[in-house]
Amino acid sequence: MSELTLTSAVVLSFLSVAFFLAFVRLLRGPTLPDRVVALDLIAVVGIGFVSAYAIASDQSILLNVASVMALIGFLGTVAFAYYLRRKA
């Protein structure tokens, strides 16, 4: 197993653990803001996944996806914050 595949395997499994933990927080709550933060974290972990996979599979085109997700991803969080403030 080459160094790169070993590193990608470690990175991707760490990211999976992070994804799982964020998902647990998303399910358990307990309040809506907690869930929104968990969703934001899932988006960030997703960006990490795509970037790590771009390196692992040697497909630089996937980095486009990561940059679009990074720029757009927080829009959902902002919209949720806007909604929460309007509701309060």
Binding site: I61, N64, I72, L75, V78, A79
Partner: peptide, 22 residues
Amino acid sequence: VPGGGFVGGVVAAAAFALYAIA
């Protein structure tokens, strides 16, 4: 490569939606 008019349009619309929220 992946991309094109639809994705570009959605990104541009998201930019203006963000501006509308702010």
